[in-house]
């Protein structure tokens, strides 16, 4: 399978503090890649750097290169809006705009002429069906989106991202603020989407990663400890930290002898 993202010696900084330090990583085209690791390890920062959403933060800067489809995403000729349309991102907490459900779904495409030809209604119906929200909201598309439950709102946010027509979807802990049932619905949806597009998802839930991942990237303390096929990593972690994390034991004191 071809590679989609390639990070070479990528360091990400907020001010002078490196959040990710000299990461080398490839993410392949297609399938679901899970980024896991303890909180504060830099998972979200890494994810957000893939479509340059960190650029919005005042004191952010980076070193090294991030290639997308063999092209440097910081290349001067690259159109940032184009990149973000190809590489969509869904935040941890859904942020709906004031306005109706329909307005929200088409928020990212209202100004694109080709999409208008296709018809916003058609696109809205297709994406809402894709996220399994159509049956719940089809008779109140024009009512305010604010009234939706948290789980519905997150699915609407995914539909909004899909409406733009991305080839890749980045998900930043999309279920962390949801109840169990809504979380399961999102997981099923992600699994489904993973068949047709590339998904990169950050999660701190190990079960979720095991259920979804084709590939796994394990990060701790700003470094990529291990990356590869999910089956391998979950069964034979090479790295001590990965192993401890997966087995749920506390991080080891490196001065102690390796327990057999």
């Amino acid at each position: 399978m071809s590679e989609l993202f390639r990070l070479t010696k990528t360091s990400l900084y907020f001010g002078n503090t490196p959040v990710i330090h000299e990461a080398n990583l490839t993410i392949k085209n297609g399938g679901i890649t899970c980024i896991i690791g303890p909180s504060g390890a830099g998972k979200s920062t890494l994810l957000r750097s893939l479509n340059r959403m960190n650029d919005l933060i005042a004191d952010f800067h980076h070193k090294g290169t991030i290639m997308y489809n063999n092209r440097d995403i910081y290349d001067k000729g690259l159109r940032l809006e184009g990149l973000r349309r190809e590489v969509g991102l869904v935040f941890q907490k859904p942020c709906l705009f004031p306005g109706s459900i329909h307005d929200n779904v088409i928020f990212g495409i209202r100004h694109i002429r080709e999409k208008k030809k296709e018809g916003f209604k058609v696109i809205a119906e297709r994406t809402l069906k894709a996220v399994g929200l159509w049956d719940e909201v089809h008779n109140r598309l024009d009512s305010p989106a604010i009234g939706l439950s948290e789980g519905q709102a997150q699915r609407l946010a995914i539909a909004r991202a899909l409406a733009v027509g991305p080839k890749t979807l980045l998900l930043d802990e999309p279920t962390s603020s949801l109840d169990h049932r809504s979380a399961r619905a999102i997981e099923t949806l992600v699994k489904e989407l993973g068949r047709t597009m590339t998904i990169v998802i950050v999660t701190h839930k190990l079960e979720q990663a095991k259920a979804l991942a084709d590939d796994v990237v394990f990060i701790c303390e700003g470094k990529i400890c291990e990356a590869g096929e999910a089956a391998n990593i979950f069964s034979h972690p090479e790295n001590i930290e990965t192993r401890c994390y997966i087995e749920g034991s506390p991080p080891l004191d490196p001065t102690l002898p390796y327990p057999e």
């Binding site: 340059r52 959403m53 650029d55 919005l56 933060i57 005042a58 940032l80």
Partner: peptide, 8 residues
């Protein structure tokens, strides 16, 4: 708040 600008 300090960070209300868009640079992207």
């Amino acid at each position: 708040s300090k960070n209300h600008e868009v640079t992207g």
